[in-house]
């Protein structure tokens, strides 16, 4: 956009501002049913048709044995495997700080699921806390259409260290 003129940030050495922006045509391809599932209030993992391994994420072939997987509906309640509260983040998420990330454990699944935890003070979060899935009313067809909140709305604070 030469007509806009060039922003010069320094002269020795010469430093200019360089802008870059792009839209992608992004396909979720074989993982599409997962994102459609979120819009219907379902969490879809994958179950291996051969060895029975259950992934809490979409994966159309098994990482253990290579066989195809089938969609596996995960329970909408789980517990916190681990967590962190981010006070900084990538530029895209800075305005959302502080936010809490968790890995969720589900009964009957061999692996975990990464999500946001909302509706709780960061200092009350702990490993093992029961959590329940919540879904966006207006889907954006992103993984953030699901997040978790404490299954019990008033979890007790952990004992003081």
């Amino acid at each position: 956009m030469a007509e806009k003129g060039t922003v010069v940030l320094g002269v020795d050495p010469l430093v200019i501002q360089d802008h870059y922006e792009i839209d992608y045509r992004h396909s979720y391809a074989e993982d599409s049913p997962f994102f459609v599932g979120l819009s219907k209030g379902k969490l879809l993992g994958s179950r291996c048709t051969k060895c029975g391994y259950v992934y809490a994420t979409p994966r159309s072939h098994c990482m253990e044995c290579g066989a195809p997987t089938a969609w596996h509906e995960l329970p909408l309640r789980g517990s916190i495997h681990t967590f962190t509260t981010c006070h900084y983040g990538g530029e895209a998420f800075l305005k959302e700080t502080p936010f809490t990330l968790i890995l969720v454990e589900f009964d009957g699944a061999n692996t975990l699921f990464l999500s946001r935890l909302k509706g709780i003070k960061p200092e009350a979060v702990r490993i093992g806390l029961p959590v329940a899935a919540r879904f966006a009313k207006m889907p954006s067809f992103k993984v953030t259409d699901v997040w978790f909140e404490p299954a019990d709305p008033h979890p007790p604070l952990p004992p003081a260290p």
Partner: peptide, 9 residues
């Protein structure tokens, strides 16, 4: 698809 949008950091 799965990790970055949640708060990639």
């Amino acid at each position: 698809n799965f990790d970055f949008p949640v708060g990639g950091f």
